[in-house]
Design a protein around this nucleic acid. Structure first.
Lengths: 190, 190
DNA sequence: GTCTATAGTAAGATAGAC
DNA sequence: GTCTATCTTACTATAGAC
């Protein structure tokens, strides 16, 4: 069994995530990251020898894992489609702090690391997300084209509502968007 | 008459805008800004004695002016509401480079300047934008509640489509969103 | 108005004590 | 595993020649 760290890995990643998602890659200086975690810079380098880039990568990996456990898994379950979608919506609400937290997929997009190692990961995450929703919708009886279109729209709405919520300084757009989401996804084909 | 600059103010602001909107405030180092404008750092300080913060402010002011001329003005004109909305859509398409360019209102939101002088401006810009669309919709005969809801949704869709377009590396989400926008705004009340 | 050269400061990153 | 102290680099900003 590994030696116990003074701050658990999960908690550490969680605190780092909060910084990256809210101030972006360039805004997340080691001073800020150290302050947020309660560790000194040298301690962060002990945990992440690759420095800031590795921190961001592991934060992103954790978010990918979260996406798999909380979006993919519920969507591919045995429950009725409406319940599966509602499960995803509930978890999204928690993940984004009810609309108070920004999305890494948006914030890290402008990281100007050489040729951006995040670009591929971000694209992949969006695709996986959209595909999972689309599959749940086809399971619900929608044809593939409308399923894909609605899935893409849903992700768009979520991202847009987060941008607007942050910009307006209120979580209302996010809450409204989530509230309308289930009906829009499963509503009658127009 | 003022002495002529080697690079016109409008062109200069335009090039600075491209940097800020795409890499954010923290990512926009003076080296990057100088490179993008073709001016040296000292020359940028001559134009903007307040440094980087002033550059970002003037960039934002220019964007506000653009918003007024290209979104507000057409929306409050004499033409039929459908035409007014389409005029806005066409100009948005140009402004965001067909979906290739990010939005300052999103990118500058994470600028970690002391107490963020941009937060108020961003909130104000979103409000003005939404209000203008809502008023055009009430002019078109919609009741105020649905007009406001749809206006907010429209801005959300645009922002979300830009985020998704950037993330996926294709302008399709943005183009799709703009194409659907007019119908969604003026469609029958459900 | 633009430039080269250079302060001064904060960034990312290491070394070595505990 | 965490810390203080330090190194190097990049950044913001200024001075002064042209």
């Amino acid at each position: 069994m590994a030696r116990r760290a003074t701050i658990e890995d999960d908690d550490l990643i969680c605190k780092l995530t909060d910084v990256f998602r809210n101030v972006g890659y360039d805004g997340a200086s080691l001073a800020v990251l150290a302050d947020a975690t309660g560790l000194k810079k040298a301690s962060l380098y002990h945990r992440f020898p690759g420095g800031k880039e590795q921190m961001a990568e592991e934060v992103f990996k954790a978010a990918e894992a979260w996406l798999g456990d909380n979006v993919l898994a519920p969507l591919t379950g045995d429950a009725p489609p409406a319940e599966r979608l509602q499960a995803m919506i509930d978890r999204l609400n928690a993940f984004y702090g009810g609309g108070k937290q920004a999305c890494l997929l948006n914030t890290l997009a402008s990281a100007h690391i050489d040729d951006g190692p995040f670009a591929r990961r971000i694209r992949r995450a969006f695709k996986i997300w959209i595909d999972a929703i689309a599959e749940a919708l086809t399971n619900a009886g929608l044809d593939e084209d409308t399923a894909r279109a609605r899935a893409q729209r849903a992700v768009m709405m979520i991202q847009g509502s987060l941008v607007l919520s942050r910009g307006l300084g209120t979580t209302k757009p996010f809450r409204d968007a989530l509230a309308a989401l289930a009906d829009e996804l499963l509503g009658p084909v127009g």
